[in-house]
């Protein structure tokens, strides 16, 4: 990554899991502070970092709530804030919306775009949904199934906010579908 090989888990690559994998025994505040605290930063520095990112994702009011008290969207925001607070430069999201109903998924997509626009974060997003890829991504990488190789790399120049019902959107969707025609596979954005 950025010229250096990847050797193992590293705080600069944050991961947002499908079910967020928040620590259920920690409050929102302590979940976000987990990384900085693990690195042995001073308590005041941890607090400052947590305050900054808790505000960024709009959860200041829920700082002391536990994960089971939060909605799916709020959990996602905690998961993102958690990796941001740990100095992540790139966030990997592996089908984070895979298990959700369509309504919730749309709301979370909007929230993700909102955070992405405010932070300028790089997100690698794995999805099986062509529509999701086109709605979110600047760049869509189509993967072949097992072994996962890159089938094609497609920059998306569609302006934002994107409308899934627009003609342009559907043109792109048609092209992408064709690329997936022979191999049914994943797309990364």
């Amino acid at each position: 990554m950025w010229g250096s090989p990847i050797k193992g888990p590293d705080p600069t690559r944050g991961m947002v899991f499908q079910d967020y994998a928040l620590f259920p025994w920690l409050s929102v505040r302590d979940n976000i502070g987990f990384g900085p605290a693990s690195r042995g930063l001073a308590r005041s520095v941890v607090k400052e970092t947590v305050d900054k990112f808790i505000d960024l994702v709009g959860l200041a009011k829920f700082a002391n709530a536990y994960p089971h008290q939060l909605s799916g969207g709020m959990k996602q925001r905690v998961a993102i804030a958690r990796v941001l607070a740990n100095d992540a430069e790139i966030v990997l999201m592996d089908e984070p919306f895979g298990a959700l109903d369509a309504m919730t998924r749309e709301r979370l997509q909007d929230e993700l775009l909102d955070i992405w626009q405010r932070t300028g974060l790089t997100v690698v997003f794995v999805t099986h949904s062509i529509e999701e890829a086109i709605f979110l991504a600047d760049r869509v990488v189509v993967m072949t199934p097992g072994p996962g190789r890159i089938e094609s790399d497609n920059p998306l120049l569609l302006s934002r906010p994107r409308d899934v019902a627009s003609i342009e959107f559907n043109d792109i969707r048609r092209v992408m579908s064709a690329k997936l025609h022979s191999h049914h596979g994943k797309k990364a954005a």
């Binding site: 888990p9 705080p11 690559r13 944050g14 991961m15 899991f17 079910d19 994998a21 928040l22 620590f23 259920p24 025994w25 920690l26 987990f34 990384g35 693990s38 690195r39 958690r82 990796v83 740990n86």
Partner: peptide, 28 residues
């Protein structure tokens, strides 16, 4: 939950530190 170990590793908490930070509270 094995995911919690992955999450802890990803956040820079590895090896024996995971025992106190993940195993104990999760098993509580």
């Amino acid at each position: 939950d094995p995911k919690l170990f992955e999450a802890a590793s990803m956040l820079g908490c590895q090896g024996n530190a995971q025992f106190y930070k993940v195993v104990l509270p999760a098993a509580l």
